[in-house]
Amino acid sequence: MAETQYALIRFQETGDAKARAGLLAGGRVLPLDGDINSLIEHWDTTEGELDALAASAGKDTGLALADVQVLAPVEPVQVLQTGANYRKHVIDLAAAHREPGQDEEEVRAKTAAMMDKRAGQGTPYFFIGLPTAIASATADLTLPSYSNSHDWELELAAVIGKTAFRVTPEEALDYVFGYTMVNDITTREYVFRKDMPAIGSDWYRAKNAPGFLPTGPLLVPAKFFGDPQDVRVTLKLNGKAMQDESTQDMIFGVAKLVSEASQIMPLRPGDLVLTGSPAGNGQHWGRLLQDGDVMEGTITGLGTQLIHCKDEVTTEGSNP
């Protein structure tokens, strides 16, 4: 008999502030014992139980999805983010920031050659995100008043299933529990420190405001997800597609990213490894997030994010 496919979620019932883990199958939510990280960590014993539970679920089992509030599906201790990991995205950025008088096609060709060399000989670029920036896939995004340069970056994220320390690329996918979707919101004007150019990027201020990591709605086990290097990442802004790219365009695939990240620090069950943003963010289009915008994000097999943006209302003089 074929396996019954399902996803994991975290949710709250109406009137109950307690967050619970749940199995989502056939539009029904089956509450589970234990928190999400415990389920992930002990997957060797919980997998069979959840497979059986999903196979036995009926149309009246558990709770209706419409009757619960779906939360972010993960609670990571560590969030590792990957920069400049889509070939087309990097080439577009290089062309957009070329020096006056430089030929665009020449810049694109030179950057493409550099990225191909990097894919064969280089290593990924990582930085650290804060778990406190994680929000649900439907929570309103408050655009901080200290800037008008907030941007979107929809990304595939790998969720670690067991402690991974100095694993090889060939081993790495065995340490991935599953996959979820993250929109890595970025305040563009804060990415580089103008007052300290020698230091370079300031990822803390640029990426870690409340709600800047909308995550989920689903956590799909790897065995149901298929090849992470062959899914579509699409973000629509007010109904118009802005990002629409295959993960085939990654410079470093998920296996390489997990392996390289594990060389420095052990990755723990439930940790997130974001895989970078495809081409088509707001900086590319010259159109950044505004009050009233609606972002609809989809990645093949991972459900849909629907994020409404609103300007922050603050007292005068607020500034981080």
Rank of each mutant, 00 (worst) to 15 (best):
Ser136Tyr: 03
Ser136Pro: 04
Ser136His: 05
Ala137Cys: 03
Ala137Phe: 03
Ala137Lys: 00
Ala137Ile: 05
Ala137Arg: 03
Ala137Asp: 00
Ala137Asn: 00
Ala137Met: 02
Ala137Leu: 03
Thr138Phe: 09
Thr138Ser: 15
Thr138Pro: 04
Thr138Ile: 03
Ala139Tyr: 02
Ala139Asp: 15
Ala139Arg: 07
Asp140Ile: 00
Asp140Tyr: 08
Leu141Met: 12
Leu141Val: 12
Leu141His: 05
Leu141Gln: 05
Leu141Pro: 01
Thr142Met: 13
Thr142Ala: 09
Thr142Gln: 10
Thr142His: 07
Thr142Leu: 11
Leu143Tyr: 04
Leu143Ser: 07
Pro144Cys: 09
Pro144Ile: 07
Pro144Trp: 06
Pro144Thr: 03
Pro144Met: 09
Ser145Met: 05
Ser145Trp: 04
Ser145Ala: 15
Ser145Leu: 10
Tyr146Pro: 03
Tyr146Trp: 11
Tyr146Thr: 06
Tyr146Val: 04
Ser147Thr: 15
Ser147Ala: 15
Ser147Asn: 12
Ser147Lys: 10
Ser147Gln: 10
Asn148Tyr: 05
Asn148Lys: 13
Asn148Glu: 11
Asn148Leu: 09
Asn148Ile: 03
Asn148Thr: 13
Ser149Ala: 15
Ser149Glu: 13
Ser149Gln: 13
Ser149Lys: 14
Ser149Ile: 02
Ser149Pro: 00
His150Gln: 14
His150Thr: 15
His150Ser: 14
His150Asp: 07
Asp151Trp: 10
Asp151Ser: 13
Asp151Glu: 10
Asp151Gly: 12
Trp152Thr: 08
Trp152Leu: 13
Trp152Pro: 11
Trp152Ser: 11
Trp152Ile: 10
Trp152Gln: 09
Glu153Thr: 14
Glu153Ile: 15
Glu153Cys: 14
Glu153Pro: 14
Leu154Asn: 05
Leu154Ile: 14
Glu155Asn: 12
Glu155Thr: 10
Leu156Ala: 08
Leu156Met: 08
Ala157Trp: 03
Ala157Glu: 00
Ala157Tyr: 06
Ala158Tyr: 01
Ala158Asn: 09
Ala158Lys: 02
Ala158Val: 08
Ala158Gly: 08
Ala158Ser: 09
Ala158Asp: 05
Ala158Phe: 03
Val159Met: 13
Val159Asp: 09
Val159His: 11
Val159Trp: 08
Val159Glu: 07
Val159Cys: 13
Ile160His: 00
Ile160Asn: 02
Ile160Ser: 02
Ile160Gln: 01
Ile160Trp: 01
Ile160Tyr: 05
Gly161Asn: 09
Gly161Asp: 04
Gly161Arg: 08
Gly161Ile: 05
Lys162Tyr: 09
Lys162Ser: 15
Lys162Leu: 12
Lys162Trp: 08
Thr163Tyr: 01
Thr163Trp: 00
Ala164Trp: 02
Ala164Lys: 00
Ala164Tyr: 02
Ala164Leu: 00
Ala164Asp: 01
Phe165Thr: 08
Phe165Asn: 12
Phe165Leu: 14
Arg166Gly: 14
Arg166Cys: 12
Arg166Val: 07
Arg166Met: 13
Arg166Tyr: 11
Val167Asp: 03
Val167His: 02
Val167Lys: 03
Val167Cys: 12
Val167Ser: 06
Val167Asn: 00
Thr168Arg: 12
Thr168Met: 08
Thr168Pro: 08
Thr168Tyr: 01
Thr168Asn: 08
Thr168Trp: 06
Thr168Leu: 10
Thr168Ile: 10
Pro169Gln: 10
Pro169Phe: 09
Pro169Glu: 08
Glu170Thr: 12
Glu170Gln: 15
Glu170Val: 09
Glu170Leu: 13
